[in-house]
Amino acid sequence: MDIALPEEGGRSTRYRLVGQPVQPVIGARFSRIAYAAAHVVADPLDMTDPWSHPAVDWERTMAFRHHLWRLGFRVAEAMDTAQRGMGFDWANARELIRRSIAEARTVEGADLASGAGTDHLAPDAANGLDDVIAAYEEQFGFIEGLGGKAIMMASRALATVAKGPDDYISVYDRILRQASGKVILHWLGDMFDPALKNYWGRSDFETALDTVVAIIERHAGKVEGIKISLLDAGKEVALRNRLPDGVVMFTGDDVNYPELIAGDGERHSHALLGIFDAIAPVANAALAKLADGDRAGYDALMAPTVPLSRKIFEAPTEYYKAGIVFMAWLNGHQDHFSMVGGMQSARGIRHYADVFRLADQAGLLADPELAVARMKSLCAVAGV
C-alpha cells in the first residue's frame, strides 16, 4: 500500500507503508503510574465561530477517555493537551471535568486527575497574589467538590504578578494547605507556553529547582508528585533525585520519556504525557513488557515512537496538540480533523505527512487503509 506525500520544494513522492500495527495488551498491569493527557474532540457541525466559541463533541470526547482506560492508562483531564489556554476556556473545562469524573465512576479501576489553574483570570486583570489565589481556589473547589483529584497547573497570571520566588512559595503554600486531597504539581516550560518564562521567579534552573523542592518539602504530605515538562532529561533527573520519600516524579518530557520511565536502576519516573494520547497502543504494550522485566522488548517498542514524538512536539512546541488530534483522526477515534480554535491550521501539510510516515513506522496506524484514505483527503485539500 502506498500514497503520494508532499516533500520540501513542492514535490510529492510515493511512500510505501512498512509498519505493522502494534496490538495492545488488554488487561495489562503496569509497573509505572501512567497518565495520558487527553485531547478534546471538537464538533465542527455545531461551530459557527471556531476561534471564539468552540463546540465540543462530548460523546466522542468521552469515548476517547474510555479508549485510554481500556488500555490501562489513567487520564489527566483538562490539561494543556486539551488546549487549556489555547482555545478551550474554563467554562468548557468545567463541563469536561464534570463529565469525565462522572464517566470515570462507571469504569472499574478508572483513574482521573483534572487540571486546576487560573485561566479564567486574564493575566493583565490580576492585581496581585490574592487574585491568583482566588482563581486557584475556584478551580480547586470545583474539582474537589466533585470528588476529583487536582493537578495544580502553572499560572500565567502568577507569572505576570510574581516578583520573585517568595511570591510563588506564598501562593503554593496557601493552595496546598487548603487542598482536601493529594495534589499533583506541574512545572511547564516556556517552550510549551511562552507566557510561563521564568516561572518560579528566576531564569536560572538551579534557583527554580530550589524553590520547587522547598515547596514540596513543606507540603510533602499533600503532594502526590510533580510533572516536569522541560524537555531536558538532566533537569528532570536533578529534581527526581531531590524529591522527598513518598513524592513521585511524573515525566512530562515528550522527547526523553522512554529512558526516564525505564530509569537508571535506582530511580525512575512515572508518566503524565501528552504523547501517550497518540501512542497509547504501543505505550501499553511497551509498559507491559517493562512490568514483565523485559527491558529489551520495552525499548524495541518505545524507540520508534520517539522520532514521531519529536516531530509532533517540534517548535513551536505549543502547537503539538494538532499532531495529537491528527493521530486520533487517522486512527478512527473521530470522523474529522477539526480542532477547538481551528488549531489544525497551526501545522502545515508537510508536517502532517512526516507524522503520517513516522506513525506508520512506529506501528501506530491501527487501520492502514483508513489512515491512507484520510491522509489522501487531507493532501487533496492542500493541493497535493
Rank of each mutant, 00 (worst) to 15 (best):
D173C: 10
D173G: 10
R174E: 14
R174H: 15
R174T: 09
I175D: 04
I175M: 15
L176F: 03
L176W: 06
Q178S: 13
A179Y: 02
A179G: 09
S180P: 00
G181R: 14
K182F: 01
K182Y: 00
V183Y: 04
V183D: 08
V183T: 11
V183H: 05
I184Y: 06
I184N: 09
H186M: 13
H186D: 12
H186I: 01
H186P: 00
L188T: 07
L188G: 05
L188R: 08
G189V: 05
G189S: 13
D190W: 05
D190P: 09
D190R: 13
D190C: 10
M191A: 13
D193G: 07
D193S: 14
L196A: 12
K197V: 07
N198L: 05
Y199I: 11
G201K: 11
G201V: 08
G201D: 12
R202L: 10
D204R: 13
D204Q: 13
F205H: 14
F205T: 09
T207H: 12
A208Q: 15
A208C: 15
L209Y: 01
L209Q: 15
L209F: 00
D210P: 00
D210C: 07
D210A: 15
D210T: 03
T211I: 06
T211F: 06
V212P: 01
V213I: 15
V213A: 11
I215H: 09
I215S: 08
I215D: 07
I215A: 11
I216N: 03
I216D: 01
E217R: 15
E217T: 03
R218F: 01
H219F: 09
A220H: 10
A220L: 03
A220P: 02
G221Q: 11
K222M: 06
K222D: 04
V223M: 10
E224C: 08
E224F: 10
G225E: 05
I226R: 06
I226V: 12
I228E: 14
I228G: 02
S229Q: 08
S229I: 02
S229F: 02
S229D: 12
L230E: 11
L231T: 02
L231F: 13
L231D: 11
L231P: 00
D232G: 05
E236H: 11
V237L: 15
V237H: 06
A238D: 12
L239M: 15
L239S: 04
R240E: 08
R242Q: 15
L243Q: 06
L243E: 07
P244Q: 12
P244F: 09
D245H: 11
D245Y: 00
G246Y: 05
G246P: 03
V247N: 08
V247H: 06
V248L: 14
M249T: 01
M249R: 07
F250D: 02
F250W: 03
F250L: 15
F250T: 01
T251P: 03
G252N: 10
G252P: 05
G252T: 04
G252A: 11
G252S: 10
G252W: 03
G252V: 03
G252E: 11
D253K: 09
D253M: 10
D254E: 14
D254A: 04
V255E: 14
